[in-house]
Amino acid sequence: MKVLKIIKNGILSENPVFRLLLGLCPTLAVTTSANNAIGMGLATTFVLVMSNVIVSMIKGFIPAKVRIPAFIVVIATFVTIVQFVMAGFLPELNKSLGLFIPLIVVNCIIMGRAEAFASKNNTFLAAVDGIAMGIGFTLALTLIGGVREILGSNTFFGYLVLPQSYKPMLFFILSPGGFFTMGVLLAFFNWISSRKKEA
């Protein structure tokens, strides 16, 4: 039962992007297309799961005072692995995500889950939490990326949506469009949850 609750938490009721508002930098920066969004989401999920697992394993013998630097080293190690894998197997994605791959280290979701969940729970639950939060993050990113890609370049995962004669609104793939899309989607989810409460 607890597992189901953790999964629901990560994807819906505590969605890292739309509910906890964590990790907004990559959320806005890499969501110019659905493809980039999924790539970033999966990379973050990998780091999140692995760091949750390791942190929950070492929580017993890390003194409380140095736990934050210890967590940072664990996270940075897995980010370096991701950097190598991306550069080796997905050079194009690596190029378009660019600076934001090393910056996964400072993504507050990962540190936040290590501190708030993994350092208090057993390894299995920590792994489940990492997967659930990762899926929640990936879904949110893909949603934003999809909206921006459809409106901004008239494609979805690279496929044409409307006939070529339709002129896409460039605004949405430029930086102001990122803030705008995120703001409107956030208001939309606020609206849904406020309706649920009333009903």
């Binding site: 102001p176 469009g177 990122g178 803030f179 705008f180 995120m182 703001g183 409107v184 956030l186 208001a187 606020n190």
Partner: peptide, 8 residues
Amino acid sequence: AIALIVAA
């Protein structure tokens, strides 16, 4: 949400 619109 409104802060994000302002930022846009």
